[in-house]
Simulated assay, not measured.
Amino acid sequence: MYGNNQITCDGSVDLCNTEDVNAKKRSCGWDVIGIQDGCYDVEGLVKALLQAKGSTEKPTFINVRTVIGIGSKVAGDAKAHGAAFGAKGVKAIKRHFGTNPDEHFVLSDKVYAFFQEMASQGENVEED
């Protein structure tokens, strides 16, 4: 999986690189799957992973287009690359995604419920 946000520390990747990474991987014999909305297309990501898992003849490259700093005031900008958002910035991101900006390190019950069975599933996979 390739997290492709098209941003470097100095700006757009186009400033320093014009390679077509999908063509490069295809020329090396890989299957290539593109996900255009890696920030929100969960169904597409799952389908791509299942397709890759089912591929036994050659490796799979999943090119996932994302937006760096999504939800922040500098989303999609080089300013989001490696810089701390600060307390105000983090609160703004939390508001953007509908979570309580004053809570820290809190996961919803929905998240806990989703991952509750993962430990036992992982143990079963290890045993198999």
Score class of each variant (00 low, 15 high):
121 Q>H: 09
120 S>M: 03
28 C>S: 14
12 S>C: 04
48 A>G: 06
21 V>W: 03
18 T>P: 00
105 F>M: 10
4 N>Y: 07
23 A>M: 10
77 D>G: 07
121 Q>I: 10
41 D>G: 05
8 T>E: 03
20 D>G: 11
84 A>R: 11
127 E>F: 10
17 N>M: 09
103 E>Y: 03
51 Q>K: 14
67 V>W: 07
90 V>L: 15
9 C>F: 06
50 L>Y: 08
81 H>M: 10
78 A>V: 01
35 I>T: 07
25 K>S: 05
127 E>R: 15
31 D>Y: 00
50 L>H: 10
84 A>C: 13
13 V>E: 12
103 E>F: 07
96 H>Q: 08
101 P>D: 04
98 G>P: 04
95 R>S: 08
18 T>R: 13
29 G>I: 05
76 G>M: 04
113 A>T: 14
105 F>T: 02
102 D>R: 00
24 K>V: 05
98 G>M: 09
100 N>P: 12
55 S>F: 00
38 G>I: 02
46 V>E: 14
62 I>C: 12
80 A>I: 09
36 Q>I: 06
67 V>Q: 06
59 P>T: 08
84 A>D: 11
87 A>M: 11
9 C>H: 13
8 T>C: 12
75 A>I: 04
70 I>N: 11
24 K>S: 08
37 D>G: 01
54 G>S: 07
51 Q>T: 12
92 A>H: 06
35 I>P: 03
108 S>C: 02
15 L>F: 02
97 F>V: 07
93 I>L: 05
35 I>R: 01
33 I>P: 08
99 T>A: 11
86 G>R: 10
123 E>P: 02
45 L>K: 01
23 A>E: 13
48 A>C: 07
110 K>Q: 15
106 V>L: 07
87 A>D: 14
22 N>K: 15
9 C>L: 10
6 Q>N: 12
113 A>V: 06
66 T>G: 08
76 G>E: 04
27 S>E: 13
84 A>L: 14
60 T>F: 04
61 F>W: 06
76 G>Q: 03
1 M>Q: 09
77 D>L: 05
41 D>H: 02
15 L>T: 03
95 R>Y: 04
50 L>A: 02
6 Q>D: 13
70 I>K: 15
55 S>T: 15
37 D>S: 09
68 I>K: 15
108 S>I: 01
100 N>W: 02
8 T>N: 04
58 K>H: 15
31 D>P: 00
26 R>L: 14
118 M>V: 10
116 Q>F: 00
91 K>E: 12
5 N>Y: 01
126 E>A: 12
72 S>I: 10
43 E>I: 08
97 F>L: 08
65 R>W: 01
50 L>F: 09
114 F>K: 13
93 I>F: 06
47 K>Q: 04
10 D>W: 02
11 G>P: 03
42 V>K: 00
44 G>S: 06
47 K>G: 00
9 C>W: 05
100 N>M: 05
85 F>Q: 03
97 F>S: 06
35 I>L: 12
49 L>G: 15
4 N>G: 01
100 N>K: 11
80 A>N: 04
70 I>W: 00
3 G>Q: 03
19 E>H: 13
